[in-house]
Design a binder for these strands. Structure first.
Length: 425
RNA sequence: GGAGAAAUACCCAAGCGGCUGAAGGGGUCGGUCUUGAAAACCGAUAGGAGAUUCACGUCUCGCGAGGGUUCAAAUCCCUCUUUCUCCGCCA
């Protein structure tokens, strides 16, 4: 969400940004917002004046009552009743206009970073850089399910009986590998100076609506029956929620946090659960990182954040590349976003394993995350990025470390977390 | 889950329909005193959201949150949230 003042003062810039994102149908919203804003302010002014009159009249009544000047009191009372009637009308109108205004403000996209490549959709995303050589071995790489089944590491049949499609049992060394990845990633981030957190895995509706749009909420979030609680889709929800309505101390910035959580997603909508196996599932686990910082530091942090993920994958010997989201593919709240994609030697292409986003002050404005400044408070910038999210990440791991006999090499950095095990057979 | 008590500014706390946007302390900041400090004394110190103004300023909202009663709400009523105490249940 943009600053209303900014829209008021820079309508052309806002429109230009909408065009860059190929959302021309939203162009009229800008003028509508400016018009609505004008009306709301006029109403506020009138209401303010009336309230001021009511306040002074009411205290006058107090004085007159003590002097027993009842006739005068009745007169003033009547005037105040009139004021209240008028206020009722004004307030209703103001509320309506404000909700119309907010509705429009919510869908006007955030101003994208000047470095974001212009493009219509995900086909125009831009590869930034590759890390490690994407190798295709001279033997055939089976589908990841077959690899995992061969080492008795997965049981989807039982999962379907117990919970349905989109769930999994990981077993034995693969389950252990899964934990090893999470634990290694946790320590990796702790070593980068991040504060490790285990957040609530359920959050209230007001936090949900604070961190995502209604459409997203409907498509992603599981609701707990009979409670005002939702299962989190990512720990970003509870981690950013932690800062709702706070005024932060300059000295304590930046907040750099890494959190572990299971993530629950309905995966309703466009694709459903088409992919066989553990690529797209209702439940997975994720190590996440978030940063809350000074506005002028967010760009710098953005670079650091996705590079941490790259470094982590490279340390496990998994080839990755960074792919920048073009303007048309960038979610409305985001200033800039880069995906980290891992190499799939089976598909001979890269697939998404992480996503790093700079939200600028958009999220902070929605959630009221401010920094105490010398001359008034201002909104913080927020960023989030995946450290690693197995089991999807395991697809990349097993495909890249598969031996011709179907055994899987454990990357050296994970071996300590696997009791020294070097090969999963 | 049941029964009680509470939520007021940076902290503690008074107030329980109008003169209270809020007594009193502590803290913090400034000053007097002192070689310097402490103590003592004096003074200052209400965060936040919004409107308006070139600006000084003015106005509105604001006593956990949201509703309601009233000419008028920190104060009365309702709902919710949180905290504390006790009981029950449970890793």
């Amino acid at each position: 969400m943009l600053d209303l003042k900014f829209v008021r003062e820079n309508p052309e810039l806002v429109k230009e940004n909408i065009r860059k994102k190929f959302q021309d149908q939203k162009l009229p919203l800008v003028d509508e917002v400016i018009e609505l804003d004008k009306k709301v302010r006029a109403l506020k002014n009138e209401g303010g004046e009336l309230r001021a009159e009511r306040n002074s009249s009411s205290s006058k009544i107090g004085l007159l009552m003590r002097n027993k000047e009842f006739e005068e009191v009745e007169k003033i009372k009547q005037r105040v009743v009139e004021i209240n009637d008028r206020l009722l009308v004004l307030e209703k109108e103001e509320e309506e206009l404000e909700s119309e205004l907010k509705k429009r403000m919510m869908v006007i996209p955030n101003i994208i970073d000047p470095t974001v490549p212009i493009g219509k959709d995900d086909s125009e995303n831009v590869e930034i850089k590759r890390y490690l050589e994407p190798k295709v071995p001279d033997f055939e790489i089976p589908y990841h399910l077959d690899i995992l089944e061969k080492v008795k590491g997965i049981d989807l049949d039982s999962a379907r009986k117990v919970a349905g499609n989109g769930f999994y049992y990981l077993t034995g060394n693969i389950a252990r590998l899964h934990s090893a990845v999470i634990t290694y990633a946790r320590d990796f981030m702790i070593n980068k100076g991040f504060l490790y957190c285990i957040p609530p895995f359920m959050i209230r509706s007001n936090v949900v609506t604070g961190v995502m749009s209604f459409a997203e909420m409907e498509q992603m979030m599981y609701k707990i029956e009979g409670e005002d609680l939702y299962l989190i889709g990512t720990s970003e929800h509870s981690m950013i929620g932690k800062f709702i309505d706070t005024i932060l101390d300059k000295e304590k910035l930046p907040y750099t946090l890494t959190s572990y959580s299971p993530c629950f997603r309905k995966e309703k909508g466009a694709h459903g659960i088409e992919e066989r196996g553990i690529y797209r599932i209702h439940q997975f686990e994720k190590q996440e990182m978030i940063v809350v910082c000074e506005p002028e530091q967010s760009k710098e942090w953005f670079e650091k954040l996705y590079n941490y993920t790259v470094e982590l994958f490279v340390s496990m010997n998994i080839p990755v590349r960074t792919l920048e989201c073009c303007s048309g593919d960038l979610a409305d709240l985001k200033v800039k976003s880069i995906d980290v994609e891992a190499w799939s030697p089976r598909q001979k292409k890269y697939f998404e394993v992480g996503s790093c986003s700079n939200l600028g002050d958009a999220q902070a404005r929605r959630l009221g995350i401010r920094i105490k400044g010398e001359k008034g408070n201002y909104f913080a910038h927020t960023l989030n990025n995946t450290v690693v999210a197995p089991p999807r990440m395991l697809i990349a791991l097993v495909e890249n470390h598969l031996n011709p006999d179907g055994s899987i090499n454990v990357p050296e950095v994970l071996q300590p977390y696997m009791g020294g095990l070097k090969v999963i057979k």
